[in-house]
Amino acid sequence: MPMTTTSAPPLRSRLRSLAATAGLALLAACGSIPTRTLEIRAIDNDERPVPCIVVIGGQDWTTAAQNKQFVHLKGGEPLRLPVAFEHPEVDIIVAAVPVDEQGNVRQTPRSRPESTELTGLLGDNRAVRLTDPARLLFVLRRR
């Protein structure tokens, strides 16, 4: 009667599967877009919080508004926003928005000139790198 034995997979096979797993993991790590949560605040020259819209990397302003990318509508709390770094630098625009007494946006600007027209404040922008500090302060000047 033949004897059946169970043996461990040969070393070469195990190494091959280990290398394949490592390769896939490396591919996944390289292929994914790094994301970082940024903490955004905006003030004026008098260092008072300014209600603003935050537009990320060439994003459409209407999309930014739909995503509720606003800061300081009702207080001094920063906006915590996850940002995907598809490129080494991501341009962030922060522009003032007009608000009513309850902190509701009266009109969403669709560009920096329109924001200036509505609020009298000049927008601020910055090219942010993945390795920059996560806390960002934008300072808006009067026109």
Binding site: N45, R129, D132
Partner: peptide, 20 residues
């Protein structure tokens, strides 16, 4: 852990400065 620091100087009635 950052490669750059953000320096800002702000004063009332003055143009602010931001430097990375």
């Amino acid at each position: 852990q950052s490669e750059r620091v953000c320096i800002q100087v702000v004063a009332a009635s003055h143009e602010p400065v931001t430097e990375m």
